[in-house]
Design a protein around this nucleic acid. Structure first.
Ligand SMILES: [Zn+2]
Ligand SMILES: [Zn+2]
Ligand SMILES: [Zn+2]
Ligand SMILES: [Zn+2]
Lengths: 162, 162
DNA sequence: AAAAGTTACGTTATAATATAACACTATGAC
DNA sequence: GTCATAGTGTTATATTATAACGTAACTTTT
């Protein structure tokens, strides 16, 4: 019960400013502990990802970075994203070609996403996909990476419409 | 056991020519029963998708269609794909931006894919993602569409390497 | 069968997403 | 300081996808 709530951060009302700060600081700690550099660029991109629990496209990130007089190019964004994805500080939402900040940085194992098609918020779960894993094992398939993206309507949005 | 084997067509040695013919003919039946037109174009694209159990990109499909003197353009392919996806005769593999023929046309419900990163073959399963569905229900999320793509190494490819 | 309505196809142009290749700069190790 | 490496910046281009508009083909109605 408590677990579910925690996992579904995106769909529960919370102090998001605190949420952002906590995640940013967790990212700093994680990088320090792994002897990696959370450079200014990487931090900028992570902060943009953490602005909301909605995924954002690489070119939208780029646009935000270029809001001032800066004129940087796509590779800069993609490289920062590459770093964040590798370290598990962000995730790629395949069905949207977009990216989102990880809400439990440092976690091990696979992640699943609940994507609301109405408010566009994305919640991150951490269940084992047990039945599938068993099926895979039965046919001798060794899972390396999983993409589990469930699109639908979150509780809030159901109320607002129906 | 038998179920698993059937589901994992892509990873089991089989008479693929027969497999193709069966699936094409199933597609014809399905369209007829739904009063839909499996036009020449749509059939062409489906046949290309059914050439193998590996996903293929829209532009590769286009290239095949343009092998003769034909010079058709992307929208034609995307429209045929749209039709096939809507009718469940093909699937989109999100993590590859590619498409694959459905191996059990007419099936109801969600599908999961096992994607071998070595031979690139894709098997289609039909399990309910029960644990996840329960989690979703617990937070009041109503699932509409699911993307489940497990990338790894198939049994054959494990032998060939390790 | 002509007219009208609808679905599918074709073409052009362009949008949106992503990467290759190469040069420059900062950082850490010695 | 020199060197090696990792990170950034820039240009150009590849890859994937769709908007917009016109034509052709099938269906339904009359
Ligand atoms: Zn938050
Ligand atoms: Zn919602
Ligand atoms: Zn086959
Ligand atoms: Zn394989």
């Amino acid at each position: 019960m408590t677990k579910s709530k925690t996992s579904c951060l995106a769909f529960s009302h919370h102090d998001h400013k605190r949420c952002q700060n906590k995640l940013l600081s967790a990212a700093r700690d994680l990088c320090e502990s792994r002897n990696l550099r959370l450079t200014e660029r990487r931090k900028q991109v992570l902060q943009i990802l953490l602005q909301s629990h909605q995924p954002i496209g690489a070119y939208d990130i780029l646009a935000q970075l270029n809001q001032g007089q800066a004129r940087i190019a796509p590779p800069i964004v993609y490289r920062a994203l590459e770093f964040l994805l590798e370290e598990g500080l962000a995730h790629r939402i395949e069905c949207k070609n977009a990216f989102i900040g990880c809400v439990h940085p440092g976690h091990q194992g696979a992640t699943q996403f609940l994507i609301c098609k109405d408010c566009d918020k994305v919640a991150e779960l951490e269940n084992p996909v047990s039945a599938l894993q068993e099926d895979a094992r039965n046919v001798g398939f060794v899972i390396d990476h999983s993409v589990v993206e469930l699109t639908g309507t979150c509780a809030d949005c159901q109320q607002n419409v129906g």
